[in-house]
Amino acid sequence: MTTILEIEKLNVSYHGTSILQDINMKVEKGEILGIVGESGSGKSTLLKAIIGLLGDNGRVESGRVSFDQVDLLRISQKELRNIRGTQLGMVFQNPGMSFNPIRKIGSQFLEALKNHRKIDEAQAMKQILDMFAKLGLGDGKRILNSYPFELSGGMNQRVAIALAMIMNPQLLLADEPTSALDVTVQAQCVKEMMDLRDHFGTTIIIVTHNMGVVSHMADKVAVMYAGDLVEYGSKTDVLNHPEHPYTKALIASIPQIGGTLPKGIPGQPPAFGQVFTGCSFSTRCHLCDDICIHEKPVMHNCENGHTVFCHKCFSEV
């Protein structure tokens, strides 16, 4: 397996307030990585930093994001433009928000194709309909002739996935692609994304709140809390044998049909910009100790590349 994306010591801030601290991550080719965590833990910011969409407020303070041996943070706008679309694709949270509301979907697909090569319309149409067929979207001509508001939310999201995939990128970033959809459509979208990997060998990084989606799709799982990566490893390791107290609490708070009310995590996630000298989860952790408050946890390796950032859990292994 070759590494397609490597993130090293990535620090990102908004207006000087640190959002991501020293994120290290490696994604292998053809792998699906699920990133989970509470709202505000920096999951979406991480995706935006990778693809260079932090906007005017966000700034990468330090670190490296190398994609296929290319450092995405240090290439020119022109090189970045060439990589975007052809090798990197992204799906956003709100279905339909990926499309300009006053232009037909067909013209936006055409634009995406024409951005990177000369292609005549008939050929382009054929390619788009092919992609629709692969994703199980019937009636492609009607979709292309519609405006975004004429399609349902679920349909929009599936079309958005098709748009992100039209240039057959190697890496697809999905920012909570299923959060705004109902459960049956969620299942469909998840299946489609997994089909993509099987068809095209696409590497996928998916950010989500939905542990069900992660446990179904992902090969590797990364858990984030307050801008820190707290646990990383294969799906079975992280979800079945969680080491970090936060991961344990997160899994305990999944609601179950017929079960009792989920436990929830006591306390609040840290406020925007709150600085910790020790572990960022210390204020809500039942294992919290003096060392947790005063010292940053270092990385502990369990087996199979399963890593945890915690002072406490290592003793239990």
């Binding site: 975007r84 928000m97 300009n100 958005a160």
Partner: peptide, 12 residues
């Protein structure tokens, strides 16, 4: 979002 989406498609 669609402005970002357009840029992500590599639009000039």
């Amino acid at each position: 979002q669609y402005m970002n989406a357009a840029k992500l498609m590599g639009t000039r």
